[in-house]
Computed example of a mutant assay.
Amino acid sequence: MSMTDAAAYSASPEEAADAATAAAARAGVEIRLLSEVGDFARVAELFQSIWTKQGESSPVNVETLRALSKAGSYVGGAFENGELVGACFGFFAAPDQRALHSHIAGVSQRMRGRSVGFALKVHQRAWALEEGLDEISWTFDPLISRNAHFNLVKLAATPTSYHRNFYGQMADALNGADDTDRMLVTWYVRDPRVVAACHGDPIGVADEPTASEPLLSVGEDLGPLRHSTDARIVRVALPRDIESLRLTEPARASAWRLALRETLGSSLEGQGRVLSFDRSGAYTIDRGEQG
């Protein structure tokens, strides 16, 4: 779809509510705001099952969720036949930003592939528009290819900055002992590209250059392979499954973290911006004027 076609989409609370209803129906779930202590306990248990090792505590507790809900922030849950199968919560940014920071979103393992996470985000956008907000931001691990595709392509979020070891050492079931580098993205909830994406009709980047040079690729040993180039438009490839590498070859996984930090991270810390993320699992980056 072109940006001209995108004009057919006009952001409004009513449009966003319709998109949220349709996304939930496609996923086969009911999504609603949570306000009861019992529901907060279920969220904590769900997140514990997703992120922590046996015997470790959840990354969020009932008291925090209760406080966020009471303060008017977003705490949403997805239900299938009365069972909580996904949840998402966030908190308001500084008042003049008219923004929400979405902190954690998670979906139970058995619901993967059902677009429950997408439905939760579309519901969160509908809530944000109803609250008069302009944007939602969150971080994700830029080494996980499926997360990059979800955030940059399926949701049409805009990468805004790269943060080195953002949370410090977490050593949970997903991050291992690796540094927690994160990419911050901003979701401009009124942008025609975002509106179209929420209706399941993502718009391609019209001005994306087709010619690019590799800056980081996957070597024959599945490790990171750096390339020397002065090109302005470059590609930074990701390993197919960094989460498995963290379990089986932690040293190689750490090498990938450093390589991505030195390529994608350094580009964004300079004048660079991410143009796209493609199906092969690579970022295309405009590094700006070099030198």
Rank of each mutant, 00 (worst) to 15 (best):
E213P: 02
P250K: 05
A93P: 04
L155H: 03
V153Y: 13
R279E: 15
D96V: 11
L34V: 02
R32P: 09
N165E: 11
L225K: 10
D5G: 03
G291T: 09
G77Q: 05
F89Y: 15
L65C: 00
E63F: 06
E135I: 00
L100A: 09
F118M: 12
G272D: 07
L174Y: 10
H163L: 15
F118C: 07
V218W: 00
P95G: 03
R146Q: 00
I31P: 10
E289P: 01
A211H: 13
E208V: 14
W138D: 08
N175Y: 12
H103K: 02
G72Y: 03
V236D: 09
L275M: 01
G77C: 05
S244W: 14
H103V: 00
D201R: 15
S49A: 09
S280E: 11
D172L: 11
A148T: 01
G113W: 05
A211W: 06
M1F: 12
G55M: 00
Q271Y: 08
R226N: 03
G72Q: 01
V116P: 10
S115K: 15
S276E: 00
T52N: 06
Y9N: 04
E135N: 08
G270T: 09
R164W: 12
A87Q: 10
F166G: 11
P192D: 11
L258A: 11
V107Q: 05
A41Y: 02
N175I: 10
D181Y: 14
G200D: 09
S115P: 06
S267V: 03
A16K: 03
R287M: 04
Y167W: 12
D172G: 12
P239K: 02
R287Y: 04
D286P: 01
L258E: 13
A156H: 13
E262K: 07
A6R: 06
R182A: 14
S266N: 09
D5R: 10
G82V: 06
T180K: 12
A255T: 06
D230M: 03
L84Q: 07
S12E: 08
D278P: 04
A71W: 00
A206Y: 09
L155E: 07
K53M: 12
T210F: 08
R252F: 02
I242D: 08
G86F: 07
Q109C: 01
V194E: 06
E15I: 00
L258V: 11
Q124R: 05
R240W: 11
H103I: 01
K154F: 03
L129F: 00
Y74I: 14
Y74V: 13
R235D: 14
S49F: 01
A157R: 11
Q271I: 05
L155R: 06
G219C: 02
D230S: 07
R26Y: 09
S49V: 01
F89A: 02
N61L: 04
C88S: 15
V236P: 08
L34N: 03
E30W: 03
F118Q: 13
V60W: 00
Q97F: 15
F79D: 04
V274D: 04
E15R: 08
